Computed example of a mutant assay.
Amino acid sequence: MGRRFRGESHHKVDAKGRVSIPASFRRVLEAGDPDWTEGLNPNLVIVYGDHRRNYLECYTMEAIDEVDDKIAALPRGSMERRMLQRMFHGQSFPTNVDETGRLVLPAKLREKIELDKEAFFIAAGDTFQIWKPETYEEEELSRTEAWLDELPDDFDPLIYLDQAKDQAGGGDGA
């Protein structure tokens, strides 16, 4: 597994749809592109999905290859494979970072998420997301806050990591 994206930031979007990618994100894109070498621009895939997805999800080449391998492992002709192919192959946009560290987001993608003058970038492990800042605040941030409000004040979310280890069969063997 390659490097992970970390952090969040706001960036201006110009009239041509150009937006700077956080520098730390560019390093992860470079590390996640097997064809990248010094002097080249790293490749990535932007998945925009169907009408329910109101953000753009950006995958390193290694991350999208992992998704593609899992889709290819599904039975040919199955509804699951066809739907995942549509979502990850059809509703996606392969691109690269330009010489100045920016992405050029086509009008279709900007219109889909109603992106105008500013974009909000947030890391999501082996992907990062691009949101219209107001949409992120209204939907994702409020969802997280509502989830946390239901938990006791002394709750530590790291407890979920121990549960994940136990579910994966990685217990301590006791």
Rank of each mutant, 00 (worst) to 15 (best):
S78E: 11
K108R: 07
E62N: 12
A63P: 02
L84V: 08
H89G: 15
I71V: 14
R81Y: 03
T100N: 10
Y55I: 04
E99H: 11
M61Q: 15
R82D: 13
E57S: 07
V104M: 08
D65I: 01
V104R: 15
I113L: 12
R102M: 06
A73I: 01
E80I: 01
L109M: 10
F88Y: 10
L84D: 13
R82H: 09
T95R: 00
L103F: 08
M83A: 15
G90Y: 08
A73C: 02
S78D: 08
A72V: 06
V104T: 14
S92T: 11
Q91L: 11
D65A: 11
C58N: 07
I71F: 04
L74D: 05
R81C: 00
T100Y: 07
E66L: 08
G90T: 15
E111P: 04
M87S: 14
R76Y: 06
C58K: 03
I113S: 04
E57Q: 14
K108H: 09
A63M: 02
C58T: 15
R110H: 07
A73W: 00
Y55T: 09
R86L: 07
M79I: 09
R76F: 04
E62V: 06
P94F: 02
M61H: 07
D68E: 15
D68Q: 14
G90W: 04
E66R: 14
L56Q: 01
G90N: 04
R81L: 01
V97H: 00
L105Q: 02
L84E: 13
V97L: 07
K112R: 11
L109F: 10
V104H: 09
D65F: 00
D68H: 08
V97D: 01
D98G: 05
Q85N: 12
F88D: 08
E57W: 00
A72R: 12
C58P: 01
A72Y: 01
Y59K: 05
R102G: 03
E62P: 00
N96V: 03
L84K: 15
D65L: 03
T100R: 09
M79Y: 11
E57F: 01
